[in-house]
Design a protein around this nucleic acid. Structure first.
Lengths: 343, 343
DNA sequence: ACCCAGTTTGTGAACGCTAACAATGCTCCT
DNA sequence: AGGAGCATTGTTAGCGTTCACAAACTGGGT
């Protein structure tokens, strides 16, 4: 008979308490908890009953200490306020949960390499088992390449200049599809409203657009550049509205397309009557712009999910089916696009 | 002298390694790390040098085990894809970081009480020191009230029927301001496109709208209801467009307002010529709708920040300045609103 | 020279869990 | 009856920190 434990129990029950109540050793409790084989059914029952009665919960710090695994994954993202990153985070979290991991997030202050380094270090200090980096700027990617040795790491974004495992959407192919679609409708050429120059997505989309134009022998107009925001799309739109020869614009994302639509509207240029507009992303609102926006859908949630899968495979020692996953985007046709009008 | 440690060091250095290299005891290393007083300056220097040389990083699991604190906070959110929750999460994360905490997120599958319970338990099992719940549905809030004893917890959302510490925006006052603004412009009454009935935000905004109408002796039209999405706003808009007597609509959020604008546009009813529209949230795109949307701005980032502050105060034993924080929203006037036209 | 108070350092013992191994019990052969 | 071989359980030793306390060292007063 124990000599301890009278009075108002305050402290959380530990494994030993469960063991005592169930009349077994703490190790047996551990076995039950971890689904080890060779535990007799009635013993298991007794242990489970004790666990329930005490409302016992294993101490994760103690477990992490001895197993050297925290069952926690880190995510570093740049601006989780944007629709894309937010959706990826969501996808990552859901996938992580079903794989039995927790998710710890941290966002970047700035997008230089040191900031990425810092974020990953922070996560590592916390003891995460692996890291997903959502940071599609060139500077971030190169930083990632440099530190990938210190902890299992997967990047989500685009570009393939590094050997870091990576999942991305087919930015180039999406841009190509969008541009070709416009050319096929008879537009002589397609203008482009690009994203920030240091984002890989921008670069790839721009390249897809340019290559398609070149392949078709169409003239390549100079690029307008925004910062993904509707505001910047509006400003670029004011400039584009003045190009009387422009009949088609491919925007690097839907938000900028929204701003562009308003600028064109204010300038009295009808869409798609005078100008056709295509976006990229297919945010949930894109179908409710005026007019509804034809765009290139990317499945951010899936992106996050796949990134996490890749990471978990790496962690659990599965041989990578492939260290490079590309998800095909898909064109969504709506009313912001029409045949080239007469000029 | 030591007999161990030759050959290719593989394993992470631990405190004892640092101690040996610096020629002190592990406890002294610990003191340096934790900024304890009574460590001679040159000793401290030697220890720090050893830490740098070995690139030693403290093991957070071991520390958590003995201190019983993980320096990790949990966040449960419902749909972190939406602009609001995503921004709050962002605010929370930034605030947490500067307070020296990590942030672990988990999202709800469904919005019933059990799901909230589960999420919080999950976080607790992981050993978080406290939890922020972003879950503004009535069912979630009541669940939160039930389990608040098990772990320090702060809710962000609205409604005040529980004793859980909470930070929210002034939904009611925002709705009142919007409605009054329309009334003041001469509109006989204001229609309302509400959010889901089980969200506290919906309820508060609807109540603010209704009370203002009643106080002004204006008729109270029946409420249209959406689900926050542009799609639902569009559908409601089709119905509203048929109400020939409607001259003003207050939408419970900007996304629905976007859908509404398109429906009105398609129905040939001009905004603000025939109908004035006001939204809620002031998402970054609101200024680029056609026409630019007058709306009620709420600062989600600030909301998250304040929630985290409250939680940290609770954790660190500071007496709450107040257990209930309300952030005042602010009207943003744009072109979607005009004086009542003649009927 | 000696003692006191304070500063600076070291020594063990937790924290709550899993890993490794040892010990017991049982079943089925021969 | 006497093991061999497996299923089942228990015992002991860490994992890498911090905490509580003890030891050693300082300097200033007598």
């Amino acid at each position: 008979m124990g000599t301890d434990s009278v009075g108002s129990e305050q402290r959380q029950p530990v494994m030993a308490d469960v063991a005592k109540l169930a009349g077994v050793s703490h190790q047996t409790v551990s076995r039950v908890l971890n689904g080890a084989p060779h535990v007799r059914a009635d013993t298991r029952e007794r242990v489970l009953a004790a666990i329930r009665e005490l409302d016992y919960r294993p101490n994760s710090a103690a477990r992490a200490l001895v197993t050297r695994r925290s069952q926690t994954l880190g995510v570093v993202s740049f601006d989780s306020t944007l629709y894309g990153p937010a959706s990826m985070l969501d996808g990552i979290e859901r996938a992580a949960r079903s794989a039995g991991y927790f998710v710890s997030v941290t966002s970047l202050r700035s997008l230089d390499g040191r900031s990425v380094q810092e974020a990953v270090d922070r996560l590592r200090d916390q003891g995460v088992d692996g890291v997903v980096v959502i940071a599609p700027q060139t500077s971030a990617v190169s930083a990632v390449a440099r530190l990938s040795s210190s902890v299992p790491l997967v990047a989500v974004g685009s570009g393939d200049q590094t050997r870091v495992p990576m999942v991305s959407v087919g930015n180039r192919s999406g841009a190509e599809a969008a541009t070709r679609h416009l050319l096929d409708l008879g537009h002589r050429t397609v203008h482009h409203l690009a994203g920030p120059a240091n984002w890989l997505e921008s670069q790839d989309r721009e390249e897809g657009w340019r290559r398609t134009l070149e392949a078709a022998g169409a003239p390549v107009p100079s690029v307008e550049r925004g910062d993904w925001s509707a505001r910047s799309g509006y400003q670029a739109g004011l400039r584009i509205a003045e190009l009387t020869e422009a009949t088609a614009v491919f925007c690097a994302n839907d938000h900028m397309a929204l701003g562009l639509l308003r600028a064109l509207h204010e300038a009295g240029r009808s869409v798609p009557g005078d100008i056709s507009v295509v976006g990229f992303d297919d945010i949930p609102e894109a179908g409710y712009f005026i007019p509804p926006l034809t765009t290139v859908r990317q499945d951010f949630g899936e992106l996050g999910r796949r990134a996490l899968e890749l990471l978990v495979e790496e962690l659990e020692g599965v041989q990578h089916s492939s260290t490079r996953v590309e998800i095909a985007p898909e064109m969504v046709l709506r009313r912001s696009v029409g045949p080239a009008g007469r000029r």
